[in-house]
Design a protein around this nucleic acid. Structure first.
Lengths: 154, 154
DNA sequence: CCAAAATAGATGCATTTGCATGTATCACTG
DNA sequence: CAGTGATACATGCAAATGCATCTATTTTGG
């Protein structure tokens, strides 16, 4: 046994931490996706609209979106088909990569994202704000950002 | 505007906290499900085995499992079909509710859960332990448990 | 007690998803 | 520069999922 091997209690703590994070995510997500906000658009499709609405350039490569969702590459492609068919997004060729697709919101897409987002954000606050103090929320935000940053660069 | 209305900055903090929690979950989950541990069994199916292995009685009602996963009732029923077909779980009639099904692990199910779990837990530790200190992990555990407990009882 | 409403889980059918594969483009190397 | 390997995204096809519905059982309220 070397001094750098993880101890079983360290492994157990990591596992329990992950389990708790995952289960809390499930608990909140079950509530959110069942809400009235997602009658018009499934939450996974909304997520793409939201991600596009939040990015500085307003456009993203499909593979960039794909790095942040739990869908296979092909499923994301098909999800984008559905959004495009509804006139909510538009595909264009990426200017610096002939293989690539840039995705942007249409005006209708922006409008729908805002409409759903208003209700969605209220649902989130209804769940999170009474559960945790503002300081606790900030700490949770910091810890999960730290975790995500590590995993993203690993 | 009443004094009990949530302020927009309180709503925003809750939303950002949720977003960060959700994205970190996605980042970790993408890694875990892509790991060698889940070549033998998809992670959603493993999750049911794991949940059964962790419960005090060794058996759970389908609707109890369903309260903690992101699958519809029918999809869980079908997932359990698949596990049963592989001889990993067995269904029995709940003794106190003629509508109900109790689910339990078979010996093969226990064995496979342990086998996959050994590798899975190592993968988790590889992601979480270098990202967060032990104190941070404990704090994250506490906060997510608090959140989950609130949402579960709301 | 009885009827109505609610609940539990299985199933039909349509939709979504994932694996494998294909085509085109890009990056790298000699 | 040319060939090879890697990457980006679409598509075929099979599997998984979700909505709606069904049957049986339990719970509720008068």
């Amino acid at each position: 046994m070397t001094t750098t091997a993880p101890t079983s209690s360290a492994v157990r703590l990591a596992a329990e931490t992950w389990e708790s994070l995952f289960r809390s995510q499930v608990a909140v997500m079950r509530r959110l996706q069942a809400g009235a906000a997602f009658k018009k658009l499934p939450i996974k499709e909304y997520d793409v609209l939201f991600t596009l609405s939040r990015c500085p350039t307003g456009k993203l490569r499909l593979n960039e979106i794909n790095d942040h969702v739990l869908l296979s590459q092909s499923s994301l492609s098909r999800l984008v088909d559905r959004l495009e068919k509804r006139g909510l997004v538009e595909r264009s060729i990426a200017p610096d990569d002939g293989r690539g697709i840039l995705l942007g919101l249409t005006a209708a897409g922006q409008e729908l994202q805002k409409e759903i987002g208003r209700e969605h954000i209220r649902d989130i606050a209804e769940l999170v704000a009474p559960a945790l103090t503002a300081d606790e929320q900030r700490e949770l935000l910091r810890l999960t950002e730290k975790l995500q940053a590590f995993v993203a660069h690993k």
